[in-house]
Amino acid sequence: MSPIFYLLAALTLAGGLAAVLLKHLVHSALAVTVAFAGLALLFLQLDAQFAGFAQILVYIGAVAILIVFAILLTHGSELPKGGVFSHTWFLGLVIAAGVFAVLGWAVLASVSAVPQSNIVPSVTVHDIGIALVGRYVLPLEIVALLLTAATIGAVIVAMHEKERAR
């Protein structure tokens, strides 16, 4: 366990926690970007260069921007009057804590049973590309279809309904 891991883990978790707790929606969006960046760095720490850069490109470059646009389009940059947490916040907290307890217990109890190799995998982009168009070509095509459908769907859903507008 290197100190870099602890640093990145702290950064990621702090970003996530801040995103969930901050009152201001735009601050939340910026905090979740920090969490995304921390995760990308953790991917790099795990020698998954391609996935790390894809994470930055997709999450910081696209998802964070989408979130920010949605916040502005729904007037979310003003503070809500009735508080930001729902009435059943305590129940939600208990459920989250319970889930974490179960996950943590499962990890700690079973991780010694998993065989672990510590060889640094030498995976090049070339290998990933070959795998994508070889063994994983069907999922790739399905994802392409899904993305197209999702883009068209999102545009249609969010489009102005002309007869209803004013």
Partner: peptide
Amino acid sequence: DMDSGLLFFFAMGAATELSVFMAGW
């Protein structure tokens, strides 16, 4: 000399957009 240098370049380019938003907002 990164194996995925071009992807890195574009990832960094994508990150600048958020700073523009931060400045404006």
